[in-house]
């Protein structure tokens, strides 16, 4: 309706937007296309081939890094989502002293530059004498996943009618039964989307992991970084393209789920 009016056509807006979309997707498309290139010299197109993907699947280091990534992402997601759900439930109740402080702390991992968090965590773990490994990565990931899990759950609770839980309490449901039978089913979409965000953010993280991983806990992004620094190869193209496609599939899935729920 707005677009039909001539006044609403701001000059330059459409071409800029088109440029933005091309700019956002051109590198992704080029990367994915080149990952199917038969040629060893990664830029020249000579023919279609799956070889590099097969090589990636055959690479033990990549498989191990993928396994580490998945273990950490699953662990951090479960921890962060359950912590965040509990916190969101408490924060949604009556106002209390210290609420602003907790809010500020929840914003901290989003606000502080990643590299600062990485350095602080590294120094902390080393000062404690902890060995850098899967455990330290899991802790660090849980920390920065909490706000990502928290925000959608909190938003969902915001729109919830408090009388529903009160009604359950009036009908003699205990706090736990109320949560399990009334609140949880209602906030489940928020919990799921929070968990998905936490999972993606953990899976994609590079900087913090790079600092606190140590030798034994190399994740996929850290491994890819090492490969990229050694040079551009078709294998890097393939593993990078895989990583991109997994993220894209995940985002599309969560979008689709959100559409169905609402």
């Amino acid at each position: 309706m707005q677009a039909s009016n001539n006044l609403w056509r701001f000059r330059g807006v459409t071409p800029t937007a088109m440029l933005a979309f091309v700019y956002l997707y051109l590198p992704i498309v080029v990367l994915v296309v080149l990952s199917f290139n038969a040629n060893r010299i990664a830029t020249l197109w000579t023919g279609f081939s799956f070889d590099w993907y097969l090589k990636v699947m055959d690479n033990d280091n990549i498989l191990r890094a993928t396994k580490n990534s998945l273990i950490i992402a699953c662990g951090a997601t479960v921890l962060a989502t359950s912590f965040a759900t509990m916190a969101a439930l408490a924060m949604a109740g009556k106002r209390f002293r210290g609420q602003a402080f907790i809010n500020a702390m929840l914003g901290l991992p989003l606000l502080v530059p990643e590299i600062v968090t990485a350095v602080a965590s590294l120094l902390f773990f080393l000062a404690l004498g902890l060995d850098l490994g899967l455990m330290t990565v899991l802790i660090a990931h849980t920390v920065f996943c909490i706000p990502f899990a928290y925000l959608p759950i909190r938003a969902r609770l915001e729109g919830l009618d408090p009388r529903l839980a009160e009604a359950a309490a009036d009908l003699y449901a205990g706090p736990f039964a109320t949560f399990r039978r009334v609140t949880l089913p209602l906030i489940l979409p928020g919990v799921l989307s929070g968990a998905m965000l936490a999972f993606i953010v953990s899976l994609d993280d590079f900087v913090i992991t790079f600092f606190v991983a140590g030798a034994g806990a190399t994740t996929l992004p850290v491994y890819i970084f090492g490969l990229i620094r050694m040079g551009i190869t078709p294998e890097v193209n393939a593993v990078s393209a895989l990583m991109l496609l997994v993220s894209i599939a995940f985002v599309a899935l969560s979008y689709w789920m959100g559409q169905r729920k609402s």
Partner: peptide, 13 residues
């Protein structure tokens, strides 16, 4: 939501 490291690599290409 997609990996920034990989997207940066795409620009190297």
């Amino acid at each position: 939501w997609t990996n920034l490291l990989v997207r940066t690599y795409a620009w190297m290409l």
